[in-house]
Design a protein around this nucleic acid. Sequence first.
DNA 1: CATATGTCCTGAGAGC
DNA 2: TGCTCTCAGGACATAT
Length: 286
Amino acid sequence: MPELPEVETMRRGILGAVGGTIVSLESCRCRRRPITIQPELSVIRRRIQGALVTDVRRVGKRVVLCTSAGFVVVEPRMSGLVTIAEPPTREHLRLRITLQNCALREILFWDRRGLGVVRLMSAAQLDELSRTRLGPDALEISPDELRHRLAGSRRPIKVALLDQARLAGVGNLYASEILHRARIDPRQECQRLTAPQWLLLHGAMRKVLQEAIRHEGSTLADGTYRNTLSQLGSYQAQHAVYDRAGETCNRCRRGTIVRIVQAQRSTFYCPTCQPAAIGKGNANRR
DNA sequence: CATATGTCCTGAGAGC
DNA sequence: TGCTCTCAGGACATAT
C-alpha cells in the first residue's frame, strides 16, 4: 500500500510532466465502478484542458500535479498506482491524463480496489487540507516537533504514528519497520516514551523512509505496487519485521518476530530487540 | 478535545 | 470443483 516512499517514487517518476500542457483528462471505461473524482469529471476536464504543469509535489501520501488551472491531487489509498508504463492489468485502469510539449506522453492512474480518489483543488483547498487534515511531513519534521506533536497521547506509539493529522506519510508497514529500528515496543504509550527514545525514533524514521525511497518502495506479495515504469520496488527485501512473523530477528539473532493487532491493523515486532518498558508499578516493586 | 469503530473495495486463500 | 467466508489496510465519517 502506497505510503510515503511509494508516493515519493510516483512523484519522481512523473516529474517529466513539468513544463508540459494537459491535452485531456479522461476516465477509462472499465466495467468497474469509477474511482471517486471531485468535482465531476466533465467539470475537471473543462477547467484543466490546456493548463500548464508547473510542478509535481507530494503532500503526505498524495501526489499533487500543480498546474496553471489548479492542483490535481491523487490519493492512491490502498491499491492506487500512478504510472507512465503498462499497468498491472487493463481492467483496473481508471484515469488517463494526456500531455504534450514535455517528456511524458501520458500519466495513468490505475487502482485495483478502486478506493483511490482524484480531486482538482484550488490553492486554498490544498492549503486547507495540509493545515487541518495533515501534520508535518515525516521527512521534514524536526525531532522536537515530532515529540511535541505525539508525546501527550495515551495511545500506543504505533497507533499514533499512523495518525496523518499528527504526522503525515507513515503508514502501517513503515511504522513497524521504524519502531524496530528505534528498538521501541510498538505497544508503548506515547506519554511514556523517554526523551532519548523520541530522538531515536526520529532518526529511525528518517533512515527507514530514505532507504525505502532509495529502493523505490516495497512491493508486497500481492505484487500490486510498482514504480512508474511498472518495475517492482525492492525495499521488501530489507524489511526487518513486516510480514515476518515466526522468523528469527536478523538483528539480535535471538528473538522471534511476532504479529499483534493494534487498532485493527497488523503490527510486527521483535520482543527481544524491542523490550516492553518497565511499568511504574514494576519499577517500584522489590 | 481525544480516541475508537465502521465503511468503502477486490482478490487471494482457507475451509467445507 | 465451487461455493462462502475472512482478511488485508488508507482515509474519512460517525460515535463515544
